[in-house]
Design a protein around this nucleic acid. Structure first.
Lengths: 155, 155
DNA sequence: TAGAAAATCATCCTTAAGTATGACCTTCGA
DNA sequence: TCGAAGGTCATACTTAAGGATGATTTTCTA
């Protein structure tokens, strides 16, 4: 019941407005003595008032045009973890030991430091590095690092 | 003049509608014999018609209601492009030229290649590098690269 | 406009890096 | 079981990298 009232609220108020206006007009007719062009004046008043009512109803009723704005919200990935490209490892025939040396080079270690860390002589390290340069087509360790990063052999 | 007509187009058509309706009603009054509740019927017709007119005018004139719906769309960046950390650049007091040299070192260039590329002598390059090592607390160029990457001075 | 900071160049020296070659040993698959 | 591949080591050499110092010029900025 309440729902029905709510639903037809506009129509009901419209009807009530109409009725009230008639009463008002009748009352005016009795009270004031409008004889000449009586009808035209009433009609004009009704016309104007109901036009205003129409506008008001229109504003109330009309469904708003929906404008959808898509806001792109960027989400930064913190870091995406390194995954060794084993394919390139096989392709360039780089051995495990060589990869170890390579990562130590990239870590900024000297040949002597690498030798100490891997418990081998500096000669061995140099040999590994020479082989790496050959395989990675590098002339310097900095070049080797660059190449290795491109081949996803280093993070 | 034409502009004025255009501007008040709505008002003019409204007035014309009003006038036409009166004539129609008068005509109906003469032709058809509506005697009982004559006024109420006329008034109702006028009310309904002008309400419709009001709604029509409202729809024509009033600026459309816009309901803005903001949809946030998440965008995951697969790779986030390098943005130089200028804060660290100032913090470590690394000059533009030094940064240039640094990036060329990271690109695997030799001192001679860097000198050629920057149109300076190898001595200048060495000086820049020496200053860089001091600022980045590095002993080797490979260490300098590592440090620079951590400080977001290099991609 | 003076002075700091940046950029430039040079020279001398030391050391690490890189090159070339040869050799020995182990492991593992054809 | 043989040989290729991987790992080890050494020696000798060349070259590039790095260190220390001093100096000049340019470019900003307080």
């Amino acid at each position: 019941m309440l729902r029905a009232i709510k639903k037809y609220k506009e129509s009901i108020s419209y009807g009530i407005s109409l009725a009230m206006l008639f009463f008002l007009l009748r009352w005016l007719e009795i009270r004031l003595l409008i004889f000449e062009h009586q009808f035209e004046i009433y009609a004009s008043i009704i016309a104007v008032l109901f036009t205003i009512l129409g506008i008001w109803i229109a504003n109330k009723i009309t469904s708003p045009k929906v404008k959808t704005i898509i806001v792109e919200k960027e989400i930064h990935r913190i870091q995406h973890e390194f995954v060794l490209n084993e394919n390139n490892l096989n392709l360039y025939k780089i051995s495990k030991r060589e990869l170890e040396v390579l990562s130590l080079i990239a870590a900024g270690k000297s040949n002597q430091e690498i030798a100490t860390e891997l418990y081998v002589s500096i000669s061995t390290v140099k040999t590994h590095i020479a082989n790496l340069f050959e395989k990675l087509n590098a002339k310097r360790r900095t070049q080797a690092i660059e190449a290795a990063k491109k081949l996803q052999l280093l993070p």
